[in-house]
Design a protein around this nucleic acid. Sequence first.
DNA 1: TTTTAACACGAAAACGTTTGCGTTGCCCAA
DNA 2: TTGGGCAACGCAAACGTTTTCGTGTTAAAA
Lengths: 351, 351
Amino acid sequence: MRRKVTLKQIAKELDVSISTVSKALRNSIEISEDTRQKVQAFAKLYNYRPNNIALSLKNRKTKTIGIIIPEIVHHFFSKVITGIELVANNRGYNVIVGLSNESFDKEVINMQMLANGSIDGFILSIAKETLQQQDYHHFIETIDQGMPIVMFDRVVNEIPCDKVIVDDVKGAKQAVGKLIANGCKNIAIITTRDYVSVGKLRTQGYLEALEDHKIHPKGSLILKIEDKLLSDDDLDKLEKEIEMLFKSNKSIDGVFAVNELYAVTAIKVARKLGLEIPKSLQVISFTDGVLSKHSTPSLTTVSQHGQKIGEKAADLLINRLELDEGDEEEEEIYETVVIETELIERESTKK
Amino acid sequence: MRRKVTLKQIAKELDVSISTVSKALRNSIEISEDTRQKVQAFAKLYNYRPNNIALSLKNRKTKTIGIIIPEIVHHFFSKVITGIELVANNRGYNVIVGLSNESFDKEVINMQMLANGSIDGFILSIAKETLQQQDYHHFIETIDQGMPIVMFDRVVNEIPCDKVIVDDVKGAKQAVGKLIANGCKNIAIITTRDYVSVGKLRTQGYLEALEDHKIHPKGSLILKIEDKLLSDDDLDKLEKEIEMLFKSNKSIDGVFAVNELYAVTAIKVARKLGLEIPKSLQVISFTDGVLSKHSTPSLTTVSQHGQKIGEKAADLLINRLELDEGDEEEEEIYETVVIETELIERESTKK
DNA sequence: TTTTAACACGAAAACGTTTGCGTTGCCCAA
DNA sequence: TTGGGCAACGCAAACGTTTTCGTGTTAAAA
C-alpha cells in the first residue's frame, strides 16, 4: 500500500526544502529548470496531489457546497441536485448533501455539522416542519457568520439571501387556464395545507385563473390534503378523500393537482368511478417527473425545470463566494431569480 | 456579521494560552474549575465550534464519505443514498456526492477530486461506460493508497473491496418462477446488453428459471436493449422494439423486464395491441420504484431494498475505517454482502 | 579587486486544532 | 531552610500547504 505522498516526503527524498518542491510544482521562476524537472518527474512518478484539507485550511475556503434538502427520493429534488452538481463541478466545487427528512431538528443538526468549516455556502430547500414552526434562527445565524445561503423552491422572504424559485402562481394559473380553454367548467384542485408555501401559491394561482375567467370558485372543489411523509396508509386516505371529492361533485370535469402523486391518484379514482381521461375528465399536475411521463395516460404537467433551478442556484452561490473574495462586506443585495415554468401537454388533457 | 470565533481569539480575549482554552473546553483536569467555567461561558456566548477542517488535518481523517453514482435522478440510487446518509449521520459522518453520469471520464475525475484528502472512503456503483471499457485502474489506485471502497449493485469481482449486492440471479429466477406458477407458458424477457452486469445476471436468472421448469428458452423471446441515456428518441425506439417483440411472438403471455421503464413501456405497447393485463399478459419488473407503485396497473416487482443496501454499504465502510484506526495493515479480508430481494405482488400479475 | 545584481534556494509563518511535556508558583513536610 | 510534590498553565510540535522574506553563491560591472 503506497500511502499518499506529501511535499515533505518529496523534499526529503530529493534533498531540497519543502518550499522548493512547492514552487517547482507550481512552475515558479525562482526555481532552476533543473530542479524543477527533477521535482516534477518525481511528483509524477509518485502521483503527488496536493492535500485538499491542507489547502482548505490555508485558504480558508473549502470549495465545497452544502446542500440541505428535505428528501432525495424525489424527482424534483434529485433533478435540482443534478443541476447543482453540474455547475459546481464545472467551477471546481464539490457538493456535500444533507437530508432533513422534513424535520426541523435534522435540518438544524445537519447545518451545524457542515457550517463549522466544512463548506463555503449552502443551497437548501426548507423542511416542512420548519415551515410550520416558522423558526428560522439557524438560517439567520449561518448568514450572520458570513456563510451565504441560496434557497430554492421552498423559500421564505424574511431571510436575507439569494433565492431561486418557480412562479408557482403563474404556473398554476397557466395550467388552470389551459383546462378552462379546453372547456372545463368545474375544475377541482387537489392541494396541500397552506403552510407549505408552494401549495399555497399554487392554490392562489388556481383561484386567480378562475377569477380571470369570471368563474366563481367553490369551496367544495378545493381539497386540501394534510401531507405527512406518505406511508401506505396515507395513500389509502388520499384515495378516499379524492373519491369523496368526486362523489360529492359529480360535475367535475377538470382537476388541477399540485403534485404528480395527487394527479395519478385522482386519475386512478376517476377511472374507478367510470370517468374517461381526457374525454370526461382532464387532469393537469404540477411537477414533471417520471410518473407524468410514463404512466398511462401520461400527464399534462407544469414543469419546473428542476435542473435549471439547481444550476442557477449553484451559479448564484458561487458567484457570491467568489465575489466575497475581492472586497469583503459589500452592499449585500440579494437576488430572487424566477425560473419560468412550462406547460407540457400530454395525454391527460384534450388536444 | 460575527465571523466564526477560534481558539486563538478566545485565548486572546481571556488572556490565557490557546492550549488552556482547548483543554478547558475539553474538560481537562489540568485546568482549574475557575478558568474552565470562564472559558466555557465565553465559548458558549460566542457560539464556538471547532473548525472541522483543522480537525481533519490534524486527525488525518475527515469523517466524510464520498459517494460516486451514475445518476441521482433514479429511484434506486436515491434510495441507496438515503440509506447511506442515514447511517453515516448516525455515526458522525458526512456524505459528499459525485455523479459520473455513466461516463468513465467523469467517474475518474470525480474520484480524483475527492481522493486527495477530502474523504475517508468511497461508496460507489460503477458507470456503464467503465463497465464497458473494463478499465478499473482508478479503483485499484485508490485502494492502493489506503482508501477503502465499498461497491454496490454494479460491482466487479476483481476489485479487492467490500461489496453490497443483490442476488440478481435469484431475484430474477423468483420472478420468472412466479410467472410460470401463474400459468405463463411463453415468457419474454426485456433486458440490457450483457456488459451491464446486473442485466446479464438477471437474464441468467430468467434462463435458470426456465430450465428448472423444463422450459426451453427461445432466442426470439429475449430482447436485449442497447440502453444509452434515455432521450425521447430512445424511448420511441424502445417502444418499437417491444412492439416488434410482441408482433412476432403472438403467444407471449408473460414478460419479465429488468427495470421499471421497460415494464411500463411493455404494458403500454401490449395494451395498444389489445392485450389485457394481467388477464392475457402478466408482467413483472425488477426494481421497485415510484412507477411500479403508482402507475396503472401497478406493477409486481422485485424489490432490491435500496435503502438497506445503502445502510449496509455505509456500515461496512465505516467499520473498516474505524477498524483501520487500531492497527494498520491487517489481513484485508473483504466481504460481499447479499441483500435479499423481495417479490412485491401488485396488479400486473394474477393473484 | 571590490561592489552589485541576478539567481536559486531555504526558513518561517500562517491556517485552527490537540497534546505531551516543561515550567512556574505554592504548600507542606522534613 | 530546603526539597518534594502538586496544581495550573504555557510552549511547541504536528497535520500539509503556500508565500513572503531572507541568504548565500556566482558572475558581471565598476
